[in-house]
Design a protein around this nucleic acid. Sequence first.
DNA 1: CGAATTCTCTACCAAATGGTAGACGATCTG
DNA 2: CAGATCGTCTACCATTTGGTAGAGAATTCG
Lengths: 209, 209
Amino acid sequence: MTGSTRDRILDEAMRLFGTDGFAATSLDALADQLGIRKQTILYHFPSKQLLFEAVIDTAALDLAKVFEQEVSKGLRGFAQVEAIVRRVFRTAVARPELLGLVREVTRPGSLSADRLATQVAPVLDRARTFLEREMQAGRLRRSDPSMLLLSLYSTVVGVATELEVQRAMGLAPTLRGTVARRQELVRFLRAALEPRVTTKPAPTLGPVL
Amino acid sequence: MTGSTRDRILDEAMRLFGTDGFAATSLDALADQLGIRKQTILYHFPSKQLLFEAVIDTAALDLAKVFEQEVSKGLRGFAQVEAIVRRVFRTAVARPELLGLVREVTRPGSLSADRLATQVAPVLDRARTFLEREMQAGRLRRSDPSMLLLSLYSTVVGVATELEVQRAMGLAPTLRGTVARRQELVRFLRAALEPRVTTKPAPTLGPVL
DNA sequence: CGAATTCTCTACCAAATGGTAGACGATCTG
DNA sequence: CAGATCGTCTACCATTTGGTAGAGAATTCG
């Protein structure tokens, strides 16, 4: 088998918690899936709750890594936004449980929301700083960075994860469909984010109040 | 007490299923909340699953009613979109469990997703038709109606419901904060949806390929 | 080699869960 | 009034749940 038992447990737990949810995932089911006994899980993680938190921590790390990788290229303006959207979609396809876990954790009243929030905070800060800078430089349309970030998050994660909603709207959840959705989403975001003056000439129009 | 026992059960079940989720809500907890015995619930609804489906049906009805009411005014272009966003936010504040239930049902792999989808289909059709018509009339920017609808859904429901994410981004979930979020979202959507030529003159620019 | 540590297992357990059976009173109906 | 129906209850039950106790194999270390 690949990796240590502990890592295998973490991996499979993320998959199950992320797709079925915390409450709907039993330790027995998780053990079965791994071909081990429940007590082995409880040896590595003293309780289900602590296992969940460990899963959240690794998920946060993975997410941060995903962003880090994409931001390091130092793109500017909407190109950077688009690159991140692409990356989020690729992640949604390759590891749907990762984004599913985010949705699970951010459920209202979730006790573990803070845990994820704290760990992802630096990434959010960077994102906000980026937005502010690009707005200042006139490469993105002006608006409240925090709120814009929230809108972006909701849209991207929503479109990337809500497969059932897509089906309900008559969009097949095929790979090609996913690509089409991403492209449409990018067009949508571009229209909302790119400055009104897209041609080269200097911004002759003052701030559009 | 208000309403029949059956209605009270449905009401409270929606609240619990919508906030805590199906798996995390036990019939005993639901009965306790209502001050009745679990067996009374099982008298009105033969099983937990059937209770859930009944809840979904009423939720679908409520959602359809919400939209019906807002669409009946016959607004045009972005004004209609904005009106619906306002309504969704009002609903999210007044009955958070209703939108929470939608999120619960649209979880990937949900067995009850089809149920809700079928019931809400007419509303979606109307929405799509509306978008198509308004695009044709030049009152909304052109794009794929189905995909646009998906983006709209994700953004609006996401921003309206993901309180934890908001907190993580440093936005207090107060009423005033909610209003501010809605306004920012509307601005975001307007930028994406309103035709580029906002002044009266005819669209001189050809399709921007 | 022998002892200590690490890891996985078998054997249980108390509590909670969804669900069944049926008693009992109220209410409706002939 | 008598019987049937309806609605809520008490009493149980089998299964599943998260978790404990501790045996025993494997590995590490002196």
